[in-house]
Design a protein around this nucleic acid. Sequence first.
DNA 1: GAATTTCGACAATGTCATTGTCTTTATAGT
DNA 2: ACTATAAAGACAATGACATTGTCGAAATTC
Lengths: 167, 167
Amino acid sequence: MSRKGWIIVLMAHRFDDELPLLLIRSFRTIVDELHDHLSNAGFGEMRALHGFALKAIDDEGVSISELAWRLGVTKQAAATTASVMESLGLAERHADPRDLRVSVITRTERANAVLGESERFYRRKEAQWRKKLGDERYEVLRECLQQMAGTEPATSIPGWLGRSTRT
Amino acid sequence: MSRKGWIIVLMAHRFDDELPLLLIRSFRTIVDELHDHLSNAGFGEMRALHGFALKAIDDEGVSISELAWRLGVTKQAAATTASVMESLGLAERHADPRDLRVSVITRTERANAVLGESERFYRRKEAQWRKKLGDERYEVLRECLQQMAGTEPATSIPGWLGRSTRT
DNA sequence: GAATTTCGACAATGTCATTGTCTTTATAGT
DNA sequence: ACTATAAAGACAATGACATTGTCGAAATTC
């Protein structure tokens, strides 16, 4: 327990009630729950980053450059992520006969299993929210978020927070 | 431009429309705007991390341990953050006469200026949202987020995403 | 066919976190 | 009071994820 636990209470509305904080804490809560779920389903080694990346790889596969573009990171970062996912058995690298420079990244069966498990989790979660918040309010939530979300890609966050130069 | 730009469009609803993505993208959009604003106001060296930390330092100052607890990170991480903020002229370290082990971290005038600028920005931003979304819908948004946010502290995100062991 | 662009790789670096170990100081139990 | 325990914070090593710069090979453009 905190040496001055009461301070938390006193400053709660200042510190914890601002919209950005609510957004990031909601995000974190959801993703934590998802990863607990995945862990129980036998995918304990999944990282949040891999989830982002997995969804950026479509059925026909993507090039490293395309992956980088979708994730909003550099090609080098995307290549590293692809390698890690490859070593985790989540992605595979193939040559592209039509362009010898590109290596096409595809999902493995295991990756599809992770995505399926995630989708199941989200469907169940959405049902819970609808029940808890009410259908109408849930729709309002989604619509408001869509308006606030802007057009930025779903950039991987660590590097964004850590980045020293802003664009 | 992307080699296969159309794929983005095709998968847009799959990839960009899930609630977690909406949350993180909204968060990112807001924080980006804030930092643009701070940059124009002469605080270009501010990092998102420092914003988290600044709000965790109250008027009387906090110890490293308390700071760590509030941010949801290790004491070592909090100490490093405090040092960085000290070198940026945002925080100061004082001895605590009542306990020689603790060093009390306080905000500087510069830090207060940053917080003031942030608050001005958020107030203006909130007014924009209320106007754009409607007062009632905005309130629904806040209430829903508060219910989804859970009780986790406002953990700094890079380490959370990068963490290999889940608790 | 030559100039340019694109793809992906390598190397070096930066930011933010973790764990483990250690010293110093404070507190609790007998 | 005296010992045992715990808490505060520092140091060192490591890990995850990103960046920039450079470079060679393959494709495209003129």
